[in-house]
């Protein structure tokens, strides 16, 4: 069976050890975590997690059932199965001398990125978009030296009125 990219959205109890329980399930059952994001929500007792993994249909079904079984998991949804919006944020520090500044400014404009910090020798750039756009930007840098970069990992939400509820 074909391996596909799945974006899982989870609502989890904001409790000690929740993240470790979920990460532990992935390693114990032999699933990879491509990227993972955890942050608080409007309900302070709940954290939302977005997680990307690659696996086939049969394995994703099993994974969903195992995640649902975890006592700390309030709700879980595979966003890939429905229309959804996904975004990722990139923060990147690159080497930039005076000669390169114009070229870099043009490039950031093309990608609708923003230069958020400048030093004598560097630019720090912020870019938001789907994962492909982030990759395209990185690839377009050519010979420009990346000093460091950090990506948020994919964030996802359903389109329209659909939502992930904290039932109960």
């Amino acid at each position: 069976m074909e391996e596909k990219r799945h974006i899982l959205s989870l609502l989890v109890e904001n409790e000690f050890g929740s993240l470790s329980r979920i990460a532990g399930l992935f390693s114990a059952r032999g699933y990879n975590i491509h990227c993972l994001n955890v942050a608080p929500t409007n309900d302070e007792s709940i954290s939302r997690m977005t997680l990307v993994t690659f696996c086939n249909e049969q394995k994703i079904q099993k994974l969903m059932r195992l995640l649902e079984k975890l006592v700390d998991v309030v709700n879980v949804k595979d966003l890939t199965g429905e229309t959804h919006i996904e975004r990722e944020m990139l923060l990147m520090k690159i080497k930039c001398n005076k000669k390169q500044r114009n070229e870099l400014k043009r490039l950031t404009d093309i990608f609708r990125a923003r230069i958020i910090d400048v030093s004598d020798t560097t630019y720090t750039i912020e870019l938001t978009g789907v994962a492909e756009k982030i990759l395209a930007f990185i690839n377009s840098l050519g010979n420009i030296k990346i000093i460091e970069m950090v990506r948020s990992g994919t964030l996802g939400i359903s389109r329209g009125a659909e939502s992930l509820q904290s039932k109960g």
Binding site: E13, L70, V71, D72, K167, G168
Partner: peptide, 10 residues
């Protein structure tokens, strides 16, 4: 507590 509800436990 006489009863307890765990929203995340079904």
């Amino acid at each position: 507590p006489k009863k307890i509800k765990l929203r995340s436990y079904k």
